[in-house]
């Protein structure tokens, strides 16, 4: 449902996480580099296009956010399908959100693309006094092969750095062919409709 719109250079990254862990704030932060600045803003964008130069080649990334729709549980597979990267956000000041993050990671590992790059994002570190506390999370990230970032959407610490670093970690010159909807199954619709020829849809995005 989704990957069909992405060009070879535009890669899809989803942001997942529990309610009010600051997903939307992260997106807002990186898209406008401002957090609760005292000025008029007209917000409607739940997605941003992010461009990073990797080996002197621009790497277009579209970041998708589902903030506000967390309870539409049956819709989430659609969100992460076709993504090449997922950032699972949790709130360091709320233990429960880390448990939810773990569940997300498990679900992604079980049902999403196995080559999906998953990052764990410890948000709201400005609320955390001792850094020691993140040991457990780091251990978990190591065990599961996740990237881990510490951010604070409030102060802006680590946010842009996370998105830049994360996009550098994404597979570079591989287009979407590698990352089909399902790794073990071909894109059968296209096969049937076009007698073996792959659809060469260019992007609809602007």
């Amino acid at each position: 449902m989704t990957s069909k719109f992405l060009t070879e250079v535009q890669q899809k990254v989803v942001v997942l996480g529990d309610f009010s862990v600051g997903k939307s704030s992260l997106i807002l932060r990186v898209s406008k580099n401002e957090f609760l600045e005292e000025q008029e803003s007209t917000i409607g964008a739940a997605f941003i296009n992010f461009s990073v130069n990797v080996d002197n080649k621009p790497n277009q990334i579209q970041i998708w956010d589902t903030a506000g729709q967390e309870k539409f549980r049956s819709l989430t597979p659609i969100y992460y399908r076709g993504a090449i990267g997922a950032i699972v956000v949790y709130d360091v000041s709320r233990e429960y959100s880390f448990q939810t993050a773990k569940e997300w990671v498990e679900e992604l590992k079980e049902k999403a693309n196995p080559k999906l790059i998953i990052a764990l994002c410890a948000n709201k570190i400005d609320l955390l006094e001792e850094k020691k506390k993140l040991l457990k999370e780091k251990e978990y990230a190591d065990e599961n092969g996740l990237l881990i970032y510490e951010t604070s959407a409030k102060t802006g610490k680590g946010v842009t750095e996370m998105f830049v670093d994360f996009s550098k970690n994404l597979p570079k010159d591989q287009g979407r062919e590698i990352f089909n909807d399902d790794f073990f199954e071909e894109e059968f619709f296209n096969i049937e409709l076009h007698n073996g020829e792959k659809k060469t849809e260019k992007t609809i995005c602007c």
């Binding site: 600051g22 939307s24 704030s25 997106i27 807002l28 609760l36 005292e38 803003s41 917000i43 409607g44 964008a45 739940a46 956010d65 589902t66 903030a67 506000g68 729709q69």
Partner: peptide
């Protein structure tokens, strides 16, 4: 709901 979330979080 997403729009409201972004409006709520993006504006003081």
């Amino acid at each position: 709901l997403t729009d409201l979330t972004f409006i709520e979080d993006g504006n003081p």
